[in-house]
Design a protein around this nucleic acid. Sequence first.
DNA 1: CCAAAAGTGTTCATAGTACACCCATGT
DNA 2: ACATGGGTGTACTATGAACACTTTTGG
Lengths: 230, 230
Amino acid sequence: MSAAFYQDEVKFYVAVDCIILGFNNKELNVLLYKRSFEPMKGQWSLMGGFVKSGESVDEAASRVLTDCTGIEHLFMEQIGAYGDVSRDLGERVISVAYYSLVNMNDFSPEILESHNATWTKISELPDLIFDHNQMINDTLSVLKKKAASRPIGFNLLPEQFTLPQLQTLYEAIYQTLLDKRNFRKKLNAMDILEKLDIKDKKSSKRGAFLYKFNEKKYNKWVEQGFDFSL
Amino acid sequence: MSAAFYQDEVKFYVAVDCIILGFNNKELNVLLYKRSFEPMKGQWSLMGGFVKSGESVDEAASRVLTDCTGIEHLFMEQIGAYGDVSRDLGERVISVAYYSLVNMNDFSPEILESHNATWTKISELPDLIFDHNQMINDTLSVLKKKAASRPIGFNLLPEQFTLPQLQTLYEAIYQTLLDKRNFRKKLNAMDILEKLDIKDKKSSKRGAFLYKFNEKKYNKWVEQGFDFSL
DNA sequence: CCAAAAGTGTTCATAGTACACCCATGT
DNA sequence: ACATGGGTGTACTATGAACACTTTTGG
């Protein structure tokens, strides 16, 4: 009976594509994989999959993310729908893109290998299949805007991080150099970080203090309207 | 042959829903219509339609917009995809929402009537079918952000408009009162308006000067990064 | 003549920006 | 001892925010 309502209409394959961003060595990276099936087998592509019959589009994206990272409940937001007629060369497929921000340290080489996946620097992106380059560009511009109004960037860092790390992250997002003192002044005013008594010596002899979030203060900022435009 | 690639996957109905916003009498309005078919016949709903086989999703939205306004090439941007399993009570339908900003004066009562459509104040929205209230809320928050970074608000006004009109428009978008002198000071600094020698006396005895865009200056602002956060 | 909306500048507080030197430590 | 990256404060500038009175004219 319910099928009768819309029966004259056409149906489409609907897919999700995930832009999984990580941060390492002063650069944003995206997780790409070598497509193992036709069409475009062997070409670089984003992680994706088709929406199944019993799941929502969000659930499909979440499933794909968990599949290829092994991690559940990752931070994830929708970018939008891509619906050009010939965007997929195999068949008409409408795709909804999602981006996720992850900590690259959480990825074992094994997980990556088992999916034919590799981290690729944003600055060295190859040509991807279909409209996947477009999806990444759209994500990067969304990220720039979002990062200024919500402290989402922290999803890209490990739980404990140094201020120089945080600064280079924002430099990578905004594609600009920031003044060290002004950056710290602003962070200090926000008062959302908790300084730990441990130093990280991976990147310098002197070592840099580690920080982590103060969840409560952080949530207060999010509610009251965040401004992180540096 | 191409069909073979994805043949194990499920297909879905894909629809577009259009949030058509107008501005009048100090308030934002949205175009709603009374649904003329099942399911939910007789309920209030956004303008929408199914994506047809030969058209892109954007084209479908554009078609729906032209259908119910009689105007071509309206300003239009995608809000996102809505893919919950049971969002449409008739059948599984994935919908992509678009918003458009229009000049309410361009709508003859006849066009509206012929679609069972009426303008409804945002502040007096009824319960709409499915997730359409959600779509409108999402649109309004996108609009708030976009209007601050691009001068899109002008799409809601006639070609010639007064400064008090423009101010109440931004007050409606931001849901706040603005200081007249600061508002004008900022606009003046931007230098994107052209003052005409005509006065509009519809809303006061004294009359207010009409302005229109200076397209060139306007485009310059858009390129160089716009800031209209009032 | 008066009600109702249009128009017009200045002052103050806040936030952003520019800028240079000392510190700690592993090699 | 020195090279490398970590850490700190101040002065200037620009931007946003608050604020009140005069002008015009239709009724």
